[in-house]
Design a protein around this nucleic acid. Structure first.
Lengths: 336, 336
DNA sequence: GTGAAAGCGCTAACAC
DNA sequence: GTGTTAGCGCTTTCAC
């Protein structure tokens, strides 16, 4: 299987060009004799032919491959984003190379190198720090599109959610529901996304005349399940009871927080109002009132890809796209 | 940035070989003069150098890239598997190309072609049908490792979970808990994985003298959330009440089934005993007794990769690995 | 210790 | 309508 163009040509005693022409559907255009076409087609039907994309890439200096670097695939938001982006790229003839950093800077740098070595045409990156981001911009000659984290570097292509506004809307909705105070359990607050979400929360609180909402914010280093557990344990240590209402800065944090609640009480108290970012069907498993702010991965993929396309075509205007979020409410279970 | 070896050589007026030798750390071995080494190192420090992996691949006819073809990334099991496998590959110096078929055969075939064209060294595939699987074996000269679905083709490398036994253990545990009858909500029963799970269920039932458990099995075409909804709706149409206990054949099916329950009653009745395949932290959000059978993605990745390595080294013994599952139990919430 | 040359499979430009 | 050729950047082999 998988003969090369040259092999076909010599086997049939025709020139390489002729073979290429019919293989690339240019037979009509260059009026290759139908007899020759037939011979070639028959040969291919029998022995098969698949282009060697590697050789092609070397010659053309483009691989029709893009890279995507995200923290983790096991995080639903990122896996959904990866899925949508992969589809979008494939529709345009690009393969997407998906890789995870596990929020490890060394890992991230190695990945960027590995993908650049492999000559990807461009790179989508969720950068883990401002510094690494700048490093990539300096070193890389490939188009870069940054995702999810706005470190405020001008002239870089970027796609983020409208976290501040989304968080504002979420907080407003929870205020309207009346359980007070509303605590905010924040994973890594140094990260721009979380910072914005905190701002939105504070905005809403201020708008309602709550001036001491700072004391309702619990912070912790990272954004994992364990960090959610830590946050809720810290809460218990301070308040000796469950919060009447709280917002988790991300799904893993929520999972951790609720698991502590469950092992403390033996159940998750139904009257706690819960807010979270990112959406998941299993949130409906909770009997509580729950608001989740959904990020629109489909639009992210579209924006990110069009930014990439622009950059690939030499367009230097780096667009910064801000994607709206939407609020989803699940009403407290009627009875149980 | 990113000069080629030749550019460095001509810039420094040295030969390509010499440059390569020091770039590949063979300087000692070939006793390149330290002066020459210094010049090269200095030049690289200033201008940078990254190997062109594409040219390398063309010459060596290997890309150090592997492909992974799965149904969807948004399914936790597959995204976790992809994560583990990607890590394992990277540790060995391979990049993994992850792509999704969305359970579409046309899609799947195109993907295989695209990856073969790009000259991946080998392919991990979750095949969607027996026929497509055989097609790939015939056409591909690359090593193939099949995952998740045992279509009973001999001499193919394969990694699957011990679904029959896992399902047996799950059913036993639920029988011991005493809620009867235990229904089985089965997505695509034509698929080997589900078929095995059904067998395990029937085994356990038979062992307990239940002979009419066939009537407790509900089947449907696919494995998605919508199919779970359909299953539960069908159940209501027949029985006019919630099942006292049931097993869902996969997480999406469970999500769908429970969402119907919730919208029917306004809550998810706590006294239903629930069994499911695949594990997710959010299962702990349910107040119910819940048993989940966990697949061991870490071991899958290890087995799959070692199978691949063997095949890459020309080993023709295609190993069929069966990975044990483990049962996780979450006790019904004490109170709420 | 260092250099030269062939060739991987493809594309593009030009020749007849 | 069909054929020839150079070259993408690397590795390998052999030469001095």
């Amino acid at each position: 299987m998988a003969k090369t163009v040259e092999q076909i040509a010599t086997a049939l005693n025709i020139s390489i060009t002729t073979v290429r022409l019919v293989l690339n559907k240019k037979a009509q255009q260059y009026r290759i004799s139908s007899k020759t076409q037939q011979r070639i087609n028959d040969y291919v039907a029998e022995h098969g032919y698949t282009v060697n994309h590697v050789a092609r890439s070397l010659k053309l200096n483009k691989t029709e491959t893009l890279g995507l670097i995200i923290p983790r695939l096991s995080n639903v938001f990122f896996s959904t984003l990866a899925e949508k982006l992969e589809l979008r790229c494939r529709d345009a003839g690009y393969q997407l190379m998906i890789s995870c950093t596990y929020s490890d800077l060394k890992h991230e740098k190695k990945l960027v190198d590995a993908l650049v070595e492999r000559n990807v045409d461009g790179l989508f990156i969720v950068p883990s720090s401002r510094q690494s981001l700048q490093h990539y911009i300096k070193r890389s000659s490939k188009p870069l599109v940054f995702l999810d984290r706005d470190f405020g570097i001008p002239d870089t292509a970027l796609v983020v959610s409208d976290n501040r506004h989304g968080s504002h809307v979420l907080t407003e909705a929870m205020i309207a529901a009346g359980q007070f105070p509303i605590f905010f359990m924040a994973g890594d607050a140094g990260q721009p996304t979380i910072r914005e979400r905190l701002k939105g929360y504070t905005d809403a609180m201020n708008a309602h005349g709550v001036t001491d909402s700072d004391t309702w914010i619990q912070e912790v280093e990272h954004n994992r399940r364990e960090d959610g557990e830590l946050l809720m344990r810290k809460f218990f240590a301070e308040h000796h009871k469950a919060p009447p209402a709280f917002i988790a800065s991300s799904l893993p944090v929520l999972e951790g927080a609720l698991s502590v609640l469950r092992s403390h009480f033996g159940y998750i108290p139904e009257d706690i109002n819960i807010g979270t970012f990112d959406e998941h069907p299993m949130l409906g498993f909770l009997p509580n009132n729950i608001w989740s702010v959904r990020q629109d991965e489909e639009t992210w993929a579209e924006k990110a890809f069009s930014s990439m396309t622009a950059a690939l075509q030499g367009d230097t205007l780096a667009e910064q796209a801000i994607v709206p979020m939407s609020l989803i409410f699940r009403c407290r279970a009627k009875h149980s």
